[in-house]
């Protein structure tokens, strides 16, 4: 494997057990860093506001992203539209640490994802199931996350994606060697990726939970379901007490299997973000880019 791909997968390994927070200003980025975030996602509007505003949503202003890069020492990520390789080139030019080719923004291409192998900066992509995850990895993604419905505060989709992916991984592990070729065909992915999952029982890259995480309990549940870390978008800065909630979610990811600690973390957090149920939303962002 190419050196760069390995290094980019390894940066994701360093983020494990951590929380990546959406921030829109340098001040929010500092709050996130002080609360123990392992990285921040710089964007002009958090998903809940993107959803409320409607219209076409694009890559953030590079100047705004630079402001956040200057404010913190932890890795800074930013989103580009699915398939929008020119936005990705711009993000690479400002030396972003990770690009999220994200369904949260309006897709720029309804057929092709970005050829991520052409880039030196790493990419994280969303996936609802194993096939989607392996297709993104084949395109060069070096980190995967669930495609839970952004900006809703409803965890159900992220749970569905993580459960499905884990059960599909278990199924691949249980197959005979000669059944793997057919599995590769069904998943529409190269044989060597299927073989890797069969032999190792996991994706070849780090897998985070994303979308709808609003409470320490949400984060802990996703970790227990097999996530290696958590993205929190609107859940923090749309809540009553962002600082306290940010710290609580960080500690919940570290202590995800310790209910006593989780109980004390969940106390007095103030108001959680106002949620929207999956049945109440018009636009299912997870259906963008498959």
């Amino acid at each position: 494997m190419e050196d760069r791909t390995t290094l980019n997968r390894q940066l994701a390994q360093m983020l494990k057990g951590g929380v990546i927070m959406d921030v829109t200003t340098p001040e929010q980025a500092k709050i996130a860093e002080a609360a123990g975030a392992c990285a921040v996602m710089a964007l002009e509007r958090i998903p809940a506001d993107i959803r409320a505003a409607g219209g076409v949503s694009r890559m953030s202003d590079p100047k705004m992203i630079r402001g956040i890069q200057e404010a913190v020492t932890i890795p800074v990520m930013a989103k580009c539209r699915i398939g929008h390789f020119a936005e990705a080139q711009i993000l690479e030019a400002i030396e972003i640490d990770y690009i999220d080719e994200s369904e949260v923004l309006s897709p720029a291409d309804d057929v092709y994802h970005i050829d991520k192998r052409k880039f030196r900066v790493p990419f994280v992509c969303g996936a609802k199931d194993l096939g989607e995850a392996l297709r993104r990895i084949n395109e060069g993604a070096t980190m995967i996350r669930t495609k839970g419905e952004p900006g809703t505060g409803d965890i159900i989709q992220a749970v569905r994606h993580m459960r499905l992916m884990q059960s599909e991984i278990r199924r691949l592990v249980s197959l005979n060697d000669d059944e793997l070729y057919e599995a590769a065909k069904q998943l529409r992915v190269p044989f060597d990726l299927v073989q890797y999952v069969h032999e190792n029982g996991k994706l070849p890259v780090v897998n985070f939970a994303a979308g709808g995480v609003a409470t320490p309990a949400d984060a802990a549940m996703m970790m227990q379901l097999g996530a290696e870390g958590v993205f929190v978008g609107s859940g923090i800065f749309k809540s009553g007490n962002p600082e306290k909630r940010a710290q609580a979610i960080v500690k919940a990811v570290t202590n995800y299997d310790n209910p006593a600690v989780l109980a004390s973390l969940s106390e007095d957090l103030g108001e959680a973000m106002v949620g929207i149920n999956e049945s109440e939303i018009q636009l299912l962002m997870a259906e963008r880019g498959k």
């Binding site: 360093m14 983020l15 494990k16 057990g17 951590g18 860093e33 002080a34 609360a35 123990g36 975030a37 392992c38 990285a39 020492t73 932890i74 890795p75 710290q247 960080v250 500690k251 570290t254």
Partner: peptide, 15 residues
């Protein structure tokens, strides 16, 4: 181990 030192310091102090 490796990771983010600011994150680890914060958690270490809190714990």
């Amino acid at each position: 181990p490796g990771g983010e030192s600011t994150a680890m310091m914060r958690i270490m102090k809190d714990e």
